[in-house]
Simulated scan of single mutants.
Amino acid sequence: MASSSATTLKPAISAAGLSKSYGDKVVLDGIDLRIPEGSIFALLGPNGAGKTTTVNILSTLIPADAGQAHVAGHDVAREGDAVRAAIGVTGQFSAVDNLLTAEENLLLMADLNHLPRREGRRRTADLLGRFDLTESARKPVVTFSGGMRRKLDLAMTLVGDPRIIFLDEPTTGLDPRSRRIMWEIIRSLVADGVTIFLTTQYLEEADQLADRIAVLDHGKLVAEGTAEELKRRIPGGHIRLRFADVSTLESAAALFGSVTSDRDELTLNIPSDGGVPALRSVLDVLDGASIEAEALTVHTPDLDDVFLTLTGHPRSGDDAPAQKESIR
């Protein structure tokens, strides 16, 4: 994961009041973004939340109805050519040509990027090596596995040497091994200073990769923060203590208010956000009563809990109000 100090850098991508509707359907409802250079930003949300629409607007594929957006310092609406020169886009579905070889696909992209012939061949060779595709360079893409296609798709995005890359669900359909290979490639790009805007439905992916995560639901950003910040805002975290016997368990339980205990397992669950102050407080209470726990573990909600808690609620005006969480 890129350094959290990236939040102090100037934004590679920024947006204010970004909105988009199709007829009566509001797809984006005034979202604000600020994504620092050299970081990974993940946008999460259920199907239809507006993730791909956001990518399409920021990459100049479609116009916004309202709001402003800047990518690589250029206004998306007024400086589309400059934006496109600075970015690469890997969509949900591979854009490779199955009838061409991997090498031919990359050379085609070099031509489309108006690279000199020698530079195009050099960059093609470099990318084939970087993505471990050299041995398959002259095989038709139709023979490739899903993971190889996805690697080639991303390699094609890099032919133009973009400093900002939009990855729209880049590992959809990949097996766990191929997904982790893609994660390593993404990390290496960020280590080279590239900014990644990632949309994904794999919550582990966002947890593993992203410096900051935003949750989009019904076209609105309902939460934003680091993975740990988001998890701490969701109820369900607790500190679990295990004791040597029932007597010690009951003595410990009497020291705390809202707890649950399991006499068979000799465990006590104390609600907690998982932070160090809360942990220290629990240990201080036990020390003050001269009670010793045999084991202690901290359990915090994961991004699945965050996703389920913050998304899927009816819109305002429907049967129930949408839940909103703002984490800055």
Rank of each mutant, 00 (worst) to 15 (best):
L209V: 05
T134G: 08
L266C: 06
T267N: 09
D153I: 07
E169Q: 09
D126I: 10
T124W: 06
E103F: 05
A6D: 09
P321A: 15
L128T: 07
P162D: 09
R123V: 00
E184Y: 04
R122N: 14
D217L: 11
T309P: 00
K51C: 03
D319M: 12
R121N: 13
Q208I: 15
V194T: 13
I165K: 06
G274H: 03
L18Y: 04
A49S: 14
T200W: 09
R180H: 13
S21K: 14
E265C: 05
L108H: 11
L203G: 11
T157D: 04
A72C: 11
I62Y: 11
R240E: 14
R242A: 13
V141S: 02
R187Y: 02
V246L: 10
D318C: 04
P176R: 13
P314D: 08
G274A: 05
G91V: 14
P271D: 01
D287G: 13
F243S: 05
G17F: 01
V159P: 01
P235C: 07
P11W: 07
R123F: 00
D264A: 14
D175I: 07
A252R: 08
G274V: 10
I62Q: 08
L99R: 15
D245Y: 02
S136A: 15
M156Q: 12
L108D: 06
T124N: 07
V76H: 00
D273V: 05
G274P: 02
A191S: 13
F131E: 02
Y202C: 06
E104S: 07
R84V: 12
S281M: 13
